[in-house]
Design a protein around this nucleic acid. Structure first.
Lengths: 193, 193
DNA sequence: CGCGACGTTGATTTGCCTCAACGATTGTGG
DNA sequence: CCACAATCGTTGAGGCAAATCAACGTCGCG
């Protein structure tokens, strides 16, 4: 499947696009390759694109006191990645986005996307629905973090994102879960007995 | 100011409504009174309305193992309150919404609102923008919880929501901050020395 | 007045962190 | 193809933030 077919079928899971709208997407989303270790968005830069992962794996994180890495999200094929805060407000990003594998994203500039919204309510609707789910996922996560001990959170992550758990190093998973690599190691040990 | 003027000026902070659109809001939002202690949304029910607080103060929370209360949000005049997860997906709510004071909300049924979206792109846009900010606020909060100790979180809450801090009992604030009332008490004591 | 809701305080426990050291694996240049 | 470094996971000892449990003071209210 080519990149745009993937993008379009992704849209069609939420809304119904006509041919003209498909054309709009094809003409305005730009494919970009990235390689392992490459930083796609820098903290401090303004994020002015929406980015859809066609292939590969990325992490989104921020630095604590300029040193310690806190992972906020992972992303793989079929996910959108961004510092939405920066994208929406035009302020400098607090998050980095970095490639964990080689891959390809489709991206579109905010100005272009806003123009598409004027031309197609279906496209605007898609993003409304998308932001809704993103919100819901975050609410879920916040509830989870506050009410579950680390062990439970780890277990649920494995069930929910087996595909991601396999692809990222353990210390980064620990960072996502909000614990130290050492502690995660102890949890895993206990579990396997 | 009457309820609808308040609602309309709230919309106009984000989009530009014409007279017909204002009429749509006035005709389709329904004012409802609630009194202190009343439960506006029950866990287990499906949330099928968007709710805008015109007056009063509410808390949104869930129960942990059917016993312990975890507060997710507070809300006062000018805020929207909901279990968006339930609203978006039509599944039973995980959250309760309960009044901390007497007050009034304006509410609209999901089916009605979806119909308004068909009639007015401005109204749909307003909600897209609204969900964007809601998302951003949640991201901010998640980052905050993971990287700051309780003391710092308390301090920031007081600065940011002085109006709320004054209106809710201390043990509920503790719940929102993710700490025990006892520990919050110790923090406050330390602070005042 | 007396009861229940709320805040405070002390003693103890615990979940998770920090620091430090040590294998195992991978990759890279000589 | 080996040697060495770097990267990653594991293990142990000790420490700290915050929880738990229990008791007590203080309001406001029926």
């Amino acid at each position: 499947m080519n990149h745009f077919d993937f993008l379009i079928s992704h849209f069609n899971q939420k809304v119904k696009l006509n041919e003209a709208e498909k054309e709009l997407l094809i003409r305005n989303f730009v494919p970009t390759e990235f390689s392992k270790g490459e930083i796609i968005l820098f903290q401090g830069d303004v994020s002015s694109h929406m980015r859809f992962i066609v292939e590969g794996c990325v992490k989104t994180y921020y630095l604590d006191e300029e040193t310690k890495e806190h992972i906020v999200h992972f992303g793989i094929e079929g996910w959108w990645v961004n510092d939405l805060y920066s994208y929406f407000t035009g302020t400098p990003a607090t998050l980095f986005i970095e490639a964990l594998e080689n891959g390809i994203i489709l991206q579109i500039h905010r100005d272009t996307l806003d123009r598409l919204f004027e031309e197609s309510q279906q496209i605007e609707r898609f993003f409304r629905l998308k932001f809704q789910s993103a919100y819901v996922a975050f609410q879920d996560r916040t509830i989870n973090i506050n009410s579950q001990p680390a062990e439970q959170r780890y277990k649920e992550f494995c069930e929910k994102y087996r595909d991601i758990e396999q692809r990222v190093p353990q210390y980064q998973l620990a960072s996502y879960l909000g614990i130290t690599p050492e502690f995660l190691s102890r949890l895993r040990k206990k579990k396997n007995l």
